[in-house]
């Protein structure tokens, strides 16, 4: 177990290193941020001064070496635009995105598993077919379009929920939370539903096919022959088996959820890292873009490690000692 963890952490470090190289070259080697930062009427001397101050006059490998050394100390550079550490900017806004992404994940799982179970237990019923048809729709509708429709219906037409912004928050453990503030959930609901929709469709399909698969197994007939109540058969025997694929996929998709929050955050003016990334891209604020990408890779690696551990906890047939359980 310890060996497994060590190996995985080493793998994660390798991936981070390679990604840092790729991201650095990709982001720093192309385009010239000086064009953006310096007044077009500035003299060549002024431009050179700014370049020197930001370290942009050095050869690329020197820039990378400095970047890597700093990164290891938690310094991912200073935002060109805000003049504050890029990592600080991101960490400041991370809780808003995490709250949004976790809420979306909860909606997808808490709604998707029961719906998928229901559709799996009654695949030929009207309800079951409707759920599955709805999940196909959830797959094909673009997120941003659904977001607009949600705003049009619930904010503009019905006037039930606010159309954007984070609204009131309350501090807890040093972070701001919408859910803890009175009325905060009203601001969170629409963006969370918007972000959840695609994953909801995914969870429904996974659960439905997993349920149908499980019902055909001999151990289900044996569970019935034991006289177990239906509640226990579905709630324990079926659920525990389908939790394995659902947890794996949902866990791995959590990273995509954060990536896709770019779209949702920009529609609902949600002040998270997705909106920050979008602003930084359009304004060529490279340190922030790099910091964002490295953070995403880091989160991805953490998630896949966590998924492996949960997977091993759920499926007794998996052993972690080999370290090859990737």
């Amino acid at each position: 177990m310890t060996l497994f963890l060590l190996r995985r952490l080493l793998q994660a470090a390798q991936v981070l290193f390679v990604m840092s190289l790729l991201v650095f070259v990709g982001v720093y080697a192309i385009g010239n941020p000086l064009d953006m930062l310096v007044d077009p009427q500035a003299t060549a001397a002024d431009t050179a001064r700014v370049a020197a101050a930001l370290g942009l006059d050095q050869p690329l490998w020197v820039q990378y070496w400095r970047f890597l050394a700093n990164a290891l100390q938690g310094d991912l550079g200073i935002s060109f635009l805000h003049g504050t550490p890029a990592l600080h900017l991101i960490v400041q806004r991370l809780p808003a995105t995490l709250e949004l992404a976790v809420s979306a994940l909860l909606i997808a799982v808490l709604l998707g598993i029961p719906l998928g179970l229901w559709a799996g237990l009654r695949p030929d019923s009207f309800g079951g077919r409707t759920v599955m048809a709805g999940s196909i729709l959830g797959f094909s509708l673009p997120t941003f379009w659904v977001g607009l429709m949600l705003i049009m219906l619930f904010s503009v037409h019905l006037g039930w929920l606010p159309s954007g912004g984070r609204g009131p928050t309350r501090e807890f453990l040093g972070l701001e939370w919408s859910l803890l503030a009175p009325g905060g959930w009203r601001h969170l609901l629409l963006p969370a539903v918007n972000l959840a929709l695609f994953k909801l469709a995914l969870v429904i399909r996974l659960t439905q096919s997993g349920t149908r698969e499980a019902l055909l197994q001999d151990y289900m007939r044996f569970a019935r022959a034991k006289g177990l109540p239906a509640r226990r058969i579905v709630g324990v025997h079926v659920l525990k088996n389908i939790m394995i694929p659902v947890v794996t996929v949902v866990g791995l998709e959590f990273g995509t959820l954060i990536a896709f929050s770019v779209v949702t955050e920009s529609i609902f003016a949600w002040p998270g890292i997705g909106k920050l990334l979008l602003d930084s891209i359009t304004q060529l604020d490279r340190p922030v873009v790099v910091a964002y990408l490295l953070l995403i890779v880091f989160i991805y690696t953490l998630i896949s490690l966590a998924v492996d551990l949960i997977y091993a906890a759920l499926d007794p047939r998996v052993r972690l000692a080999g370290g090859q359980a990737a």
Binding site: G26, V27, I30, G31, G255, T256, A259, F260, V262, V263, L277, L278, I281, L284, V289, L293, I296
Partner: peptide, 14 residues
């Protein structure tokens, strides 16, 4: 995620 790859490339190329 595809959207992230595409966003970064567009950020680079314009």
């Amino acid at each position: 995620p595809a959207i992230l790859t595409a966003m970064i490339l567009l950020a680079l190329f314009g």
